[in-house]
Each structure stands twice: as structure tokens, then as C-alpha cells.
Simulated assay, not measured.
Amino acid sequence: MRQLLVFHEREDAEEVAETLGEWFPALGVPQVVREALAGEDDAEDAQWLVVLEGVAEESLAKVDELAERYEGWREQG
């Protein structure tokens, strides 16, 4: 199942993606994408997403802890 990790800062998303690539080398480094908030015209208000696929259910708590360290959160995509 696909998981989306949401961050306010690009640097945070990139660091988390690199860490996840190290933790789960078989999955490779997750993609980092930018998502503008609905109704927002200002590029400053964009969120950064780490798209993570193929992580086992039992590993999601560890993923959540990492996201929270960078003031992010996980959503199912």
C-alpha cells in the first residue's frame, strides 16, 4: 500500500527519503514531490510529500516516528 509522508520543508522531506532508502534498500529512495494546498496561490504554502510504497505494516510505526521527528505525518495514499 502507498504511504504519503507530509512535510512543510523540502529539506526535511529529502532527509527522510534518504533515511528511508537506507532503512529499506530493496525499495530504493522514495520519491519527493511538491503538492500545493487546495486554494493556495502562494508557493510558500506548498507541502512536500515523500511517496513510500511497499513498506510492511509492522514497519509503519518506525516510519511514523521518523516523520514526527521532522514535524511531519503519514497518510495513506
Rank of each mutant, 00 (worst) to 15 (best):
M1E: 10
L4D: 06
L4H: 06
L5D: 03
L5R: 01
V6L: 10
H8R: 07
H8S: 10
H8Q: 11
H8C: 08
E9P: 05
R10P: 00
R10S: 00
E11G: 11
D12G: 06
D12L: 00
A13T: 00
E14C: 09
V16L: 10
V16P: 01
A17Y: 01
T19N: 08
T19E: 12
T19S: 06
L20H: 02
G21R: 04
G21T: 08
E22F: 12
E22A: 07
F24P: 00
P25Q: 12
P25K: 08
P25I: 07
P25V: 05
A26I: 07
L27W: 09
G28T: 13
G28Y: 09
V29T: 11
V29E: 10
P30F: 03
P30S: 08
V32D: 09
V32Q: 00
V33N: 03
R34G: 10
R34H: 02
R34M: 11
E35I: 05
E35L: 10
E35A: 12
E35G: 11
A36P: 05
L37S: 14
L37V: 15
L37A: 14
A38D: 14
A38K: 13
G39F: 06
E40Y: 08
E40K: 12
E40A: 12
D41E: 12
D41A: 14
D41M: 09
D42E: 14
D42A: 14
D42T: 13
A43I: 15
A43F: 11
E44M: 13
E44H: 14
D45H: 09
D45V: 02
Q47I: 09
W48K: 05
W48Q: 02
L49H: 03
L49D: 01
V51P: 00
V51S: 04
V51A: 03
V51D: 05
L52G: 01
L52I: 03
L52K: 03
L52E: 02
E53P: 04
G54Q: 06
V55F: 07
A56D: 14
A56N: 11
A56Y: 09
A56E: 15
E57G: 06
E58R: 10
S59N: 12
S59H: 15
L60P: 02
A61V: 14
A61C: 12
K62D: 15
V63E: 03
V63N: 00
D64Y: 10
L66M: 07
L66W: 04
A67T: 02
A67G: 01
E68L: 11
E68I: 09
R69H: 13
Y70A: 13
Y70F: 15
E71V: 11
E71A: 14
G72C: 03
G72N: 03
W73C: 11
R74K: 12
Q76R: 07
G77C: 06
